[in-house]
Amino acid sequence: METSLIKEELLAQQLQNAFENIVTEAVRKDTVFAYASKEQVSSILLYAKEKLGYKSLAHMSCIDWLESDEFELVYIIWSPETKLNLFVKTRIDRQNPEMENMDMIWRQLNTYQREIREMFGVEFPGFVGEKEFILEDWEDAPPMRRDFDTLEYVNDTFFEREGREDKQDVRERIAKRSGEEIPDFAKKYSRE
């Protein structure tokens, strides 16, 4: 069934009219994406909060685009009146990741920013918060970055049980022994 995206298109148009150099897209029901530059994000968020009634911050997240050498920060905000989710997305440089500190707009951004600083190494200048969030005594690269080699770190830090070094994939052997076949959809998860 085709659903009409009238509310969504309206919001996209509103944002488009209010800001220059912003790309908006009504992607699906209840969801609108807005791609903006790093400097515009705070004004978009404030505008959406004060003028359009997007009072609730649902989430803030970070995506590592290793191939294009960028981090993408996503702010998800929600309006109790229109019941729409607005995703404000921005890309920042991966080599020197910095983002404006916005925990005065929503206090709960403080927690999200602490997490992103710890897990991705994105700095928020002027941001006051505990240095450690989940990890303790972490000295390595931020662990959620895609170029952080988890396996290498694990092999360096933790111990291996003797006799398990080869990490054999025993699935095929067990399947052969019990006379079963691995279904096609499961074959792509083989380690080879």
């Binding site: 990890l135 662990p143 952080f148 988890t150 396996l151 770190y153 694990v154 830090t157 933790f158 111990f159 291996e160 049980r161 398990r164």
Partner: peptide, 19 residues
């Protein structure tokens, strides 16, 4: 606790308790 289980390649869980 025996060999890491499903967390065998996790950066923040230990793999071998008896060490």
């Amino acid at each position: 606790t025996i060999n890491g289980g499903m967390y065998w390649d996790s950066y923040n869980t230990i793999k071998l308790l008896d060490k």
